[in-house]
Lab assay of single mutants.
Amino acid sequence: MIINNLKLIREKKKISQSELAALLESSRQTINGIEKNKYNPSLQLALKIAYYLNTPLEDIFQWQ
C-alpha cells in the first residue's frame, strides 16, 4: 500500500488542488483521489508532482 503526504506538503506550499492539477495537466478530482488514497498515481504523474512541489518523491509517497 502506498501512503502519501501530498495534502500536507501541498498545503504547506500554499498550493490549491486546482492549481496543482493545472500544473500537472490533470484534474482536481485526480489530486483529491490521490490525497485520499483512493487513487495511486502513475510513475509519470508521481514524478511530475514531486517536480512541481520541489520535493523528493520519497517524501511524498511511501510504501507501507
Score class of each variant (00 low, 15 high):
Met1Leu: 15
Met1Thr: 07
Met1Ile: 11
Met1Arg: 07
Met1Cys: 13
Met1Trp: 06
Ile2Cys: 14
Ile2Ser: 08
Ile2Thr: 10
Ile2Tyr: 10
Ile2Phe: 10
Ile2Asp: 04
Ile3Ala: 07
Ile3Tyr: 08
Ile3Glu: 07
Ile3Pro: 02
Ile3Leu: 13
Asn4Phe: 08
Asn4Pro: 02
Asn4Gly: 04
Asn4Cys: 10
Asn4Gln: 03
Asn4Tyr: 08
Asn5Cys: 13
Asn5Thr: 03
Asn5Asp: 03
Asn5Lys: 07
Asn5Ala: 06
Leu6Gly: 03
Leu6Asp: 02
Leu6Phe: 00
Leu6Lys: 00
Leu6Thr: 01
Leu6Val: 03
Lys7Ser: 07
Lys7Thr: 06
Lys7Leu: 08
Lys7Gln: 11
Lys7Val: 06
Lys7Cys: 10
Leu8Ser: 14
Leu8Ala: 14
Ile9Gly: 01
Ile9Leu: 09
Ile9Trp: 08
Ile9Thr: 05
Ile9Phe: 09
Ile9Asp: 00
Arg10His: 02
Arg10Asp: 02
Arg10Gly: 03
Arg10Ala: 04
Glu11Gln: 12
Glu11Val: 11
Glu11Thr: 12
Glu11Tyr: 07
Glu11Leu: 13
Glu11Pro: 02
Glu11Met: 13
Glu11His: 08
Lys12Asp: 08
Lys12Leu: 13
Lys12His: 10
Lys12Val: 08
Lys13Cys: 14
Lys13Gly: 05
Lys14Asp: 08
Lys14Cys: 11
Lys14Val: 05
Lys14Ser: 10
Lys14Thr: 05
Lys14Glu: 09
Lys14Tyr: 06
Lys14Ala: 10
Ile15Met: 15
Ile15His: 03
Ile15Gly: 02
Ile15Arg: 03
Ile15Lys: 04
Ser16Thr: 13
Ser16Ala: 06
Ser16Cys: 05
Ser16Phe: 04
Ser16Pro: 05
Ser16Val: 03
Ser16Gln: 04
Gln17Cys: 05
Gln17Ser: 05
Gln17Arg: 07
Gln17Phe: 04
Gln17Asn: 03
Ser18Pro: 06
Ser18Glu: 13
Ser18Gln: 13
Ser18Asn: 12
Ser18Met: 12
Glu19Met: 11
Glu19Arg: 14
Glu19Cys: 11
Glu19Gln: 14
Glu19Asn: 10
Leu20Gly: 00
Leu20Thr: 00
Ala21Met: 03
Ala21Glu: 02
Ala21Lys: 02
Ala22Ser: 12
Ala22Arg: 14
Ala22Thr: 12
Leu23Ser: 08
Leu23Gln: 09
Leu23Gly: 09
Leu23Lys: 11
Leu23Ile: 09
Leu24Val: 15
Leu24Lys: 00
Leu24Ile: 15
Leu24Glu: 00
Leu24Ala: 12
Leu24Phe: 02
Glu25Tyr: 09
Glu25Lys: 15
Ser26His: 09
Ser26Val: 15
Ser26Tyr: 09
Ser26Glu: 15
Ser26Cys: 15
Ser27Arg: 09
Ser27Phe: 05
Ser27Asn: 13
Ser27Leu: 05
Ser27Val: 05
Arg28Ser: 12
Arg28His: 09
Arg28Gly: 07
Arg28Lys: 13
Arg28Phe: 09
Gln29Gly: 11
Gln29Pro: 06
Gln29Tyr: 11
Gln29Trp: 12
Gln29Asn: 12
Gln29Val: 10
Thr30Arg: 10
Thr30Phe: 14
Thr30Ala: 09
Thr30Gly: 03
Thr30Glu: 10
Thr30Met: 14
Ile31Leu: 07
Ile31Pro: 01
Ile31Val: 11
Ile31Trp: 01
Ile31Cys: 04
Ile31Gly: 01
Ile31Asn: 01
Asn32Ile: 14
Asn32Arg: 15
Gly33Ala: 15
Gly33His: 13
Gly33Thr: 07
Gly33Pro: 01
Gly33Tyr: 13
Ile34Ala: 01
Ile34Gln: 02
Ile34Met: 04
Ile34Glu: 01
Ile34Tyr: 02
Glu35Asn: 01
Glu35Ile: 05
Glu35Phe: 05
Glu35Tyr: 04
Glu35Leu: 05
Glu35His: 02
Lys36Val: 10
Lys36Pro: 02
Lys36Ser: 14
Lys36Tyr: 07
Asn37Met: 07
Asn37Gly: 15
Lys38Trp: 15
Lys38Leu: 15
Lys38Asp: 10
Lys38Ala: 11
Tyr39His: 10
Tyr39Lys: 10
Tyr39Gln: 10
Tyr39Thr: 10
Tyr39Phe: 14
Tyr39Glu: 10
Tyr39Pro: 01
Asn40Ile: 15
Asn40Ala: 15
Pro41Thr: 07
Pro41Met: 05
Pro41Asn: 03
Pro41Glu: 03
Pro41Trp: 05
Pro41Gln: 02
Pro41Ala: 04
Pro41Cys: 04
Pro41Val: 10
Ser42Thr: 12
Ser42Glu: 05
Ser42Trp: 05
Leu43Gln: 08
Leu43Cys: 15
Leu43Met: 13
Gln44Asp: 12
Gln44Tyr: 11
Gln44Lys: 13
Gln44Arg: 13
Gln44Ser: 13
Gln44Glu: 14
Gln44Pro: 10
Leu45Asp: 03
Leu45Val: 05
Leu45Ala: 03
Leu45Gly: 00
Leu45Pro: 00
Leu45Glu: 05
Ala46Val: 04
Ala46Ile: 05
Ala46Cys: 09
Ala46Met: 10
Ala46Trp: 04
Leu47Ala: 10
Leu47Asn: 09
Leu47Gln: 12
Leu47Glu: 11
Lys48Ser: 07
Ile49Asn: 00
Ile49Lys: 00
Ile49Glu: 00
Ile49Arg: 00
Ala50Tyr: 05
Ala50Met: 03
Ala50Glu: 03
Ala50Cys: 06
Ala50Val: 04
Tyr51Phe: 13
Tyr51His: 11
Tyr51Thr: 07
Tyr51Ile: 07
Tyr52Asp: 00
Tyr52Leu: 13
Leu53Thr: 02
Leu53Val: 03
Leu53Gln: 00
Leu53Arg: 00
Leu53His: 00
Leu53Met: 05
Leu53Phe: 08
Leu53Ala: 01
Asn54Leu: 07
Asn54Lys: 11
Asn54Met: 10
Asn54Pro: 01
Asn54Ala: 12
Thr55Ile: 06
Thr55Phe: 06
Thr55Pro: 03
Thr55Tyr: 05
Thr55Glu: 10
Thr55Ser: 08
Pro56Ala: 09
Pro56Gln: 08
Pro56Trp: 06
Leu57Glu: 00
Leu57Ile: 11
Leu57Asn: 01
Leu57Phe: 06
Glu58Gly: 13
Glu58Pro: 09
Glu58Tyr: 12
Glu58Met: 09
Glu58Ile: 09
Glu58Lys: 12
Asp59Lys: 11
Asp59Thr: 08
Asp59Trp: 08
Ile60Glu: 00
Ile60Gly: 01
Ile60Ala: 01
Ile60Met: 05
Ile60Pro: 02
Ile60Asn: 01
Phe61His: 00
Phe61Ser: 00
Phe61Tyr: 01
Gln62Thr: 09
Gln62Glu: 08
Trp63Thr: 03
Trp63Lys: 03
Trp63Arg: 03
Trp63Asn: 02
Trp63Val: 04
Gln64Phe: 08
Gln64Ala: 14
Gln64Tyr: 11
Gln64Met: 08
Gln64Leu: 06
Gln64Asn: 13
